[in-house]
Write a protein that binds this DNA or RNA. Structure first.
Lengths: 157, 157
DNA sequence: TCATTTTGCTTTAGGCCTAAAGCAAAATGA
DNA sequence: TCATTTTGCTTTAGGCCTAAAGCAAAATGA
């Protein structure tokens, strides 16, 4: 009852663009898995918490929940719960926005800043270790390639 | 109290390998977001369920839960719950493994196969649409680049 | 002014995901 | 043979994540 030949192509990995996407996703998944484990084992924290801290570190004056949510590409509700945990741990500070009574400005506390630096250093070390044998010029090539993909995906940043 | 100059580098986006990784993760996140929404809106399903179905489609004779979990890079417990849902929907069949009483062989039902084909076709269309303006040679280049990254990440496939 | 709409955020229900504990079958080895 | 260990899977607790509902403040506009 086959339609054309004895063996149909999987039709999945067949097309180049599909292979590109599948491979991209797989790289992200493998890398995330390693990072999650490292953050958990060595610092008892998570990648999403690190992401929030990294975003706040870039804005010493703090950010609203909404801006945080847009920067990280996650929902408002999600930011609410991650920030709450960081707050419980004393790593972030939440101050009412003088301009807008609905909003609060979140920023890293000194302790948060201190911890972030340690996390960021380890994070960089882990990543650098993965690419240690790749020539810088090749890395830049890959960065450019992903820049192109990001543009095609319509990143709004 | 700065150590070297008036303005320290963010040290984040600074190094090429970190930019590579951040960009990779961001591409994956943006793309996943779009796919998740498409699967939800148009087929009332999810990317993880599609992934399981795709893996089963590739193995017409079925796979054990363990193999499924390794193929998808997720935990056993996670596969248990996703397969249970597909089973509830009548999309997969679970048969005791004659060789091993602890294990069961999961496979797509006819209905599962039928639905998968529709999902796969739409999935391919969405991806192809993203890369429609990219010359095939360029796509292959990007595929190769990600193949290199995947190897560096130590993919066991 | 002030009713209506919009906006920023939180809560809730529910799916995805993991690590760890637990269970039963299979494998091991004395 | 049979106690012990290993293996395949499920369950549980708990974090991440979203969409949708809900709330209150801000913005709008007649």
């Amino acid at each position: 009852m086959e339609e054309r030949s004895a063996r149909e192509e999987p039709a999945g990995a067949g097309s180049p663009e599909l292979r590109l996407w599948v491979r991209l996703l797989r790289c992200a998944k493998i890398g995330e898995k390693q990072l999650r484990r490292n953050f958990e084992d060595q610092f008892d924290t998570t990648l999403p918490r690190f992401d929030v801290m990294a975003a706040l570190h870039r804005e010493p004056d703090g950010m609203s929940m909404g801006r945080l949510s847009k920067a990280l590409l996650v929902s408002n509700g999600n930011v609410t719960s991650i920030v709450r945990q960081l707050h419980t741990q004393g790593l972030v500070l939440s101050q009412p926005d003088p301009q807008d009574g609905r909003s609060a400005i979140v920023s890293l506390t000194e302790e948060g800043e201190r911890q972030f630096k340690q996390l960021a250093e380890a994070h960089h070390r882990w990543i650098a270790d993965i690419f240690r044998d790749v020539p810088p010029a090749r890395i830049d090539q890959l960065v450019d390639g992903l820049g192109e993909v990001r543009r095609l995906l319509g990143d709004k940043t």
